[in-house]
Design a protein around this nucleic acid. Structure first.
Lengths: 238, 238
DNA sequence: AAGTGGTCTAGACCACTGA
DNA sequence: CAGTGGTCTAGACCACTTG
C-alpha cells in the first residue's frame, strides 16, 4: 500500500488509527495490540512500515513492546509532569548585588560534594524583567584559589543566561527542587519584601555528564510572579 | 555490517558513537552531522540501519533533521524539566472531611468553564501517609443536579487514587500550577497549622481529550513534605 | 545535476514464547 | 512448532535543496 494522495505516509495512518483507539478507550491499558503480521494484512503493507507506525506510538508512551510477546497499551501515569519554567526566568536581566566567599552549610556541602573546609563563592543577584524585580538568586560555585578569577565568576553569574544562549551545552544537566519558604534575611534585604511572605524557592543543581556538581543556585520568586506551570498525560495534536 | 558478538545492534553502535561526540562536545549544537550515505560508508551498513540510529538520537532530542538538508545537533534547553510528583502524593490515604455545594469564584469558573451561576461540588480531604498528615486537598467538580449522585462523588474523591489505579485512562490530561501561599482559613482548620506558614499549592486541572474540563483540585502541602523534584537536560544511561 | 532525507518493499535470520 | 518481535539488507521512487 502506497501512501495516499494527501501525502499521508502509511505508517502515520497506522499510528493515527491505533492512537485514536487508545485515546477513545476502545483499546484499554494493558490490552494487547494486533501483531505486526496482522497489521501488515490489515493495512496491506510491509512489516517495516508497520513497525514504523508502532515505534511512533512507543515513543509517545502510548504502547510498549514485550519482545516475542506483542505490543501492549501502556498504563498512563498522571504523576509525571513536563514543567516549563516561564520565559522571564531566562530572558531576565540580572543585576549583580554582592559576592562573598563563605563556608558552605551542610546542605550546600552535600550538593556540591565539597571537600571538608572547602569554601564556596556566593554571588547575589536581583532578577528583573521589564525593570520590575521578580526575584533574587544566589549562585554558589566551589572556590578554588585563583582559578577561575572572581571577576570571571561575576561575569559568568551576571551574564549566565547570555552565556547559555551563546554556548549551550549538553555537558551538564540540572536537578530542580521546588519548595515554599519564607525568605531569609539576606533576601528580604535584596527584594525589600516582607519577611513573612511566602516565596517559591527554586533550587538548581547543575551536574556535569561526568557526575561532578558544577554549581548550585537558589532562586526566590515573589508571589506575583511565582507560579510554575506543567502538564501531564497525553496531549493530542503535538 | 552485522551486529557484533556482544549482541549490540549496529544501529545502537552508531547512535552511541554519535551521542558520545555530542555529549563531550566534539559535535556542537547547530553543527551538521555526516549524511546518511556517509554514515553508511563509515559503518559499512545499509541506510535503514543508519536511519534507525539517527532516529534514536532524534527521540532523545540530541539531534533534529531538516529534510533534504541533513541532521543537526540540537540546542539544549535547560528550562524544561520533568517533574515527578513524589509517590506519597499517590499512595496516600485520603480522609473525607466535608462536602459543600458552592458558588465558584472567578478563577474556578474560568478553569472549569462553568456556565454563569452553575455551582460546583467541593470536597475536602486530608492527606495522610503512614498516619501522618502531609497536606489537604479540595476537589471541585461541576455540579449537575442529580447526576452523578453526591455519594458517588464522595466515593470518587476519597478513593480517586484507587480508582485511577484500577481504571487508568488516556481520556484526560492534567495541567499543573505550582505556587507558594498562605493557607486559607478552611485549610488551617483541617491541617491545624499556622495561618502564617508557607505552603506549596498544587492546582490541578483535569481536561478530557475533547477539551472539556473534568475537575479541578487544590492541594496544600505542609513544608516538611512540600518539596518537588525535577530534572532537565540530557541524562546518560537512560 | 548531484545529493539529501522520507518513504516503502520483499525478502532474510535470529532468539525466544507459548500452546 | 508456529508465531512473535528485533535486526538487517539492497534495492527503489519521491520531492526537494544546493551548488
Amino acid at each position: 500500500m502506497k501512501s495516499n494522495n494527501k501525502h499521508v505516509p502509511v505508517y502515520m495512518m497506522i499510528s493515527s488509527a491505533l492512537r485514536e483507539q487508545i485515546l477513545n478507550g476502545s483499546l484499554s491499558p494493558g490490552q494487547i495490540l494486533p501483531s505486526e503480521n496482522e497489521l501488515c494484512s490489515i493495512y496491506n503493507t510491509s512489516r517495516e512500515t508497520v513497525r514504523k507506525g508502532l515505534i511512533k506510538l512507543e515513543q509517545e508512551n502510548l504502547i510498549y513492546s514485550l519482545p516475542r510477546r506483542g505490543y501492549f497499551v501502556s498504563t498512563p501515569h498522571h504523576n509525571k509532569f513536563t514543567l516549563s519554567l516561564p520565559e522571564y526566568l531566562f530572558q531576565s536581566q540580572n543585576s549583580f548585588q554582592d559576592i562573598k566567599i563563605i563556608n558552605a552549610e551542610e546542605e550546600l556541602q552535600k550538593a556540591l560534594q565539597l571537600s571538608p573546609g572547602q569554601k564556596v563563592i556566593a554571588i547575589f543577584c536581583k532578577n528583573y524583567i521589564n525593570n520590575k524585580v521578580f526575584g533574587a538568586e544566589i549562585k554558589y560555585t566551589p572556590y578554588q584559589k585563583g582559578i577561575p578569577s572572581i571577576e570571571s565568576e561575576i561575569d559568568y553569574a551576571v551574564f549566565q543566561e547570555a552565556a547559555n544562549a551563546k554556548a549551550p551545552s549538553f555537558n551538564y544537566y540540572t536537578q530542580l527542587r521546588i519548595s515554599a519558604v519564607f525568605p531569609p534575611e539576606e533576601i528580604t534585604h535584596l527584594l525589600q519584601c516582607d519577611k513573612k511572605e511566602p516565596l517559591l524557592l527554586l533550587g538548581r543543581l547543575h551536574i556535569s555528564q561526568s557526575g561532578k556538581p558544577i554549581g548550585y543556585s537558589k532562586q526566590y520568586l515573589l508571589p506575583s510572579y511565582g507560579e510554575l506551570l506543567g502538564v501531564s498525560g497525553y496531549i493530542k495534536n503535538k
